[in-house]
Design a protein around this nucleic acid. Structure first.
Lengths: 189, 189
DNA sequence: CACGGTTGTCAACAGGTGGTGACATCGTCA
DNA sequence: TGACGATGTCACCACCTGTTGACAACCGTG
């Protein structure tokens, strides 16, 4: 981002590749698949759009690479018994803390794009749902995983959309208090 | 939808207008704002794309008109005490029953589109959240409304996306059994 | 019938998209 | 140094999008 203006980017293919992946990940987590343009990502990295096509072949393959790259591991890091608390905090006080939710946000924002949705369908199970389900364990784990993922996505999107209905700090705490036990109960089974 | 091939559509401005609104509503509920093209809607109605621009001025204004047209009333129809059951059923066995969720789905699918999101932010409060909050009533109604709307959206999008993880009929019932009391509890407060 | 307004169609445009091949520039190794 | 592969840039293409103005068909009214 303006980096290219300072110095012409060291000729390092691997670094550039991961920089592209990182920028793309952020973009795809914030906007829908079609909304994100190659030119946007290229500008973020400080590189020519053509380079992205060269490295990844096409926008679809770039998207696939992004999804391949980030598993949902962040969700499962940390203490199980505080999952509800942590996630409720992320959801209420995001989007500053949205790195944890990258996978979910990307899935979410790309729901309305046939191409992207198909790719997500292909990858989400083995890269996200399956590990998450195993991590959950216990009775009806697959169902609880789906419900949990759904709730996290839904509250996140609700936060984006209801900008006209800002919550006071006190209400934020109330919302956290409402969400945390709900999520925790789903983890505990 | 092939209708134009059969007969050249009666010259009735009002009917055509509402037909366009209806088709647009369905499209916007199924795909994201950018993904839906004027030409798609026009084809659905059996009309020339130019006519839509003529009637509504622009795609943005069409979107606004769609949102103006459909309030979230369907959610609030029916017995309060069976809300959880009803919605859980809609969510698990959709998208056949998604008419009830039109507002939510449109909000959801357009989350990744700056233009559409702005419009949603403008309209969602007075057209959706406010009436829904009043209908809910009780303690922390605004928060419960947001959480409820979020969950409904999230589970709906989860269903779209996890196509690779189909649930058995029995699992569907389990999911319903998991969701229904959760939603009902949020309604009851 | 002829006129005028309404309803709809057609062709076209400007802008933006992802993708491609030719070219420039750097680092490295003989 | 000179040459070669790797890395990145540029101009450009075909395609698609929303939108517009000129045109055609229809209907009710005089």
């Amino acid at each position: 981002m303006g980096f290219a203006a300072v110095c012409p980017r060291p000729r390092n293919a691997a670094a550039t590749r991961t920089a592209i992946l990182e920028a793309a990940s952020k973009r795809f987590a914030a906007e829908s698949y079609e909304q994100v343009g190659m030119r946007d990502i290229a500008r973020d990295v400080g590189v020519d759009p053509a380079l992205i096509s060269r490295y990844f072949g096409s926008k679809e393959e770039l998207f696939r690479a992004v999804l391949d790259d980030c598993d949902g591991q962040e969700l499962m890091d940390g203490d199980r018994s505080t999952f509800g608390e942590r996630m409720a905090d992320d959801l209420v006080y995001g989007p500053a803390k949205d790195e944890d939710l990258a996978w979910l946000l990307i899935m979410l924002k790309s729901a309305g794009s046939p191409k992207a949705a198909e790719i997500v369908q292909q990858l989400s199970v083995e890269c996200f749902y399956q590990p998450f389900t195993e991590w959950l364990g216990g009775k009806d784990a697959p169902i609880r995983a789906r419900v949990l993922a759904g709730i996290l996505m839904g509250i996140a999107v609700g936060r984006d959309l209801s900008g006209g209905m800002k919550l006071s700090p006190e209400e934020c705490e109330r919302m956290k208090a409402l969400l945390a036990p709900m999520l925790q109960e789903l983890v505990d089974g």
